[in-house]
Design a protein around this nucleic acid. Structure first.
Length: 275
DNA sequence: CGGTGGACCTGCTGGC
DNA sequence: TGCCAGCAGGTCCACC
């Protein structure tokens, strides 16, 4: 579900409510996520205070005042929500974090592709899940020169390239489609043959699409899956130009949006604007 | 090494 | 109405 803008939106919502608060109780109802949740270690983190919340790629990192951190990835269907403790539990509420001040943070994940780990700061600094990640697309390391250099001589489609977290993090299947539309580049374009002049457009499109989506609180599709930490919907879906618009008219040229499968995922583009 | 495709898991939708 | 194939925001790993 969540790509960078959704994770960032959740992070911002959580920050306001739980930084500087102490965790009173951690309950693991179902430890079977992508990796098994380390229940005893995690439960033992109760009593610690959250000193800050960071985002790296699509990971959330809750730093504690005990030199440890809770690392959370939401996978495809994970949700984090702040609720009153008396709120009825649902089937897929797998972890509960009870905070002082009558606030409960719930991790909910239907498909259980997510991840929750407890790591020391030292472990976090060298953790293989994080150590191979490329630069943040909204950070300084994401330059046109970097993007171009990494692509040299490679034949993979530009869509696969942008979705590869070793190249750049945070871009998933919704935003990659929108980014390529904004840049006017065909998703199958071999990345090693992208023109000199197109690289700037591509970098600009990455940053603009992600920034705009964050500004609009992420994307909530028809199924209503994505919510921020307070349960509110995003509204970037109103700005989607190609994603899930097969057969509908292009917003620029009115040609029909085409859908193909690439990297085993639905891929949408305008055959004229991205020709 | 670079690139592709399947596996992980549950639930919803649409066609027959 | 019921059944079943196909699909869904991500990531990792085995295999060519």
């Amino acid at each position: 579900m969540p790509e960078l803008p959704e994770v960032e939106t959740i992070k911002r919502g959580l920050e306001l409510r739980i930084v500087d608060r102490t965790i009173l109780l951690i309950t693991v109802r179902n430890p079977n996520l992508r990796r098994r949740v380390p229940t005893p270690a995690l439960r033992a983190a109760a009593g610690a205070k959250v000193t800050s919340i960071r985002r790296r790629a699509k990971y959330l990192i809750f730093e504690l005042d005990t030199q440890r951190a809770i690392l959370i990835h939401l996978g495809m269907s994970g949700r984090l929500s702040l609720v009153a403790p008396e709120t009825p539990l649902s089937k897929h509420d797998h972890l509960l974090f009870g905070f002082e001040g009558d606030i409960e943070l719930r991790y909910h994940d239907v498909r259980r592709f997510g991840l929750v780990l407890l790591l020391s700061f030292a472990e976090l600094a060298v953790h293989p899940l994080l150590s191979h990640l490329g630069p943040e697309p909204l950070g300084r390391g994401f330059t046109t020169d970097y993007l171009k250099a990494k692509a040299a001589k490679r034949k993979i489609p530009v869509k696969s390239y942008l979705m590869n977290s070793r190249i750049v993090v945070g871009i998933g299947n919704i935003y990659v489609n929108e980014i390529l539309f904004a840049a006017g580049i065909h998703p199958l374009q071999p990345v090693g043959e992208i023109l000199e002049t197109e690289w700037d457009a591509l970098r600009t499109a990455v940053r603009k699409v992600l920034r705009t989506a964050i500004g609009r609180g992420g994307t909530t599709l028809k199924d209503g899956q994505f919510r921020n930490a307070s349960g509110e919907l995003g509204y970037f879906q109103q700005k989607l130009c190609v994603y899930d618009r097969e057969g509908e008219p292009c917003v620029n040229c009115a040609a029909e949006i085409v859908r193909i499968t690439l990297c085993n995922r639905s891929t949408y583009y305008c055959p004229i604007c991205q020709g």
